[in-house]
Design a protein around this nucleic acid. Sequence first.
DNA 1: ACCTGAACACCGTTCAAGT
DNA 2: ACCTGAACACCGTTCAAGT
Lengths: 186, 186
Amino acid sequence: MPTPARTSLAEITSATRQLIETGGLDGLTMQHVASSVGIKAPSLYKHVQSRGDLVRLVIEDVAEELGRTLQAALTGQDPIADTVALARSFREFAHGHPEAYRLMFAAIPDEWRPDPSIMAAASQPALETTSALVGPADSLNAARLLTAWVHGFVTMELAGAFRLDGDIGQAFEFGIERLVAALSPD
Amino acid sequence: MPTPARTSLAEITSATRQLIETGGLDGLTMQHVASSVGIKAPSLYKHVQSRGDLVRLVIEDVAEELGRTLQAALTGQDPIADTVALARSFREFAHGHPEAYRLMFAAIPDEWRPDPSIMAAASQPALETTSALVGPADSLNAARLLTAWVHGFVTMELAGAFRLDGDIGQAFEFGIERLVAALSPD
DNA sequence: ACCTGAACACCGTTCAAGT
DNA sequence: ACCTGAACACCGTTCAAGT
């Protein structure tokens, strides 16, 4: 005699993401997830293979949202303006979803690595912009320079690694300015 | 009747760092640490307040070693050569101690944050080099640009985030070259 | 002063039993 | 087909008892 599902994978994923954003990955328990969707922990295993599997679903969800956000920041008009917009949008996203953002670049066991195509899609906007900026030959190298810097900046910021004084927002603008100059054709 | 200590804080810290490097932070248990120094888990609490405290000690150890390594990479002769050497030395360190490196920038509960002065010392070499390169006014911004990029690059590399093809070592050299150019006075 | 076994609360996961 | 309680192995930590 079948029982109608009391929840869904989408609901579980969304609840998990919210719990991670609130209490961090370390604070995430299967009990919390289960009770936040109205079931008991063992029932989760009818929807999900394991806690790691659940984390992977959340990472993919975050990566898709980041990709959409970055894409939306581009106008396709001015490569320099787009590069600046991309960097600012990236930073804004990380500030808005710090735990989810952290998760995306966390060390994850190989079995729970997110789908590579989803991660690739998230890096598409950067590739697009740098291609317009430096041309196709250097575009991959340029995209890696840009994303490594933004990611590193934001990660250090979130980890509280910028201990010394000074305006951090201004340091970010300094970085963009110099990077754009370094990538612009002479 | 006192019992002579069978181990020491230094030995415990070093054993913990080795275990983290081998099995990652998630795989670290107090049992493992204890047995690797020849005692039982509860005895660890005579040397250390908690697992988090132990992790903090390891982070401080790693940060000190990184600081010494970076300092040793500098010659003080040519600011451009020193900047390049600093970046390469940083990357080499991360490759040599990937888990320990990751740890340094991990999200740590406030109570177990490492001593700020130790982390500050580790960033001293970067400040020194960029100061020679761009002058004191922009040196903090420049150091942040440089370290954010190196850190981001290495983190993405370690996380397997550079999924697209292309020589990663060459992407690193591309990054240094453009950054040095961006920071050099015209 | 340091170490230990026993115990506690908590966790992820499995499984037989319910509807 | 989905959900549950009970159980398992494991974890960090506490504490009384040993030397």
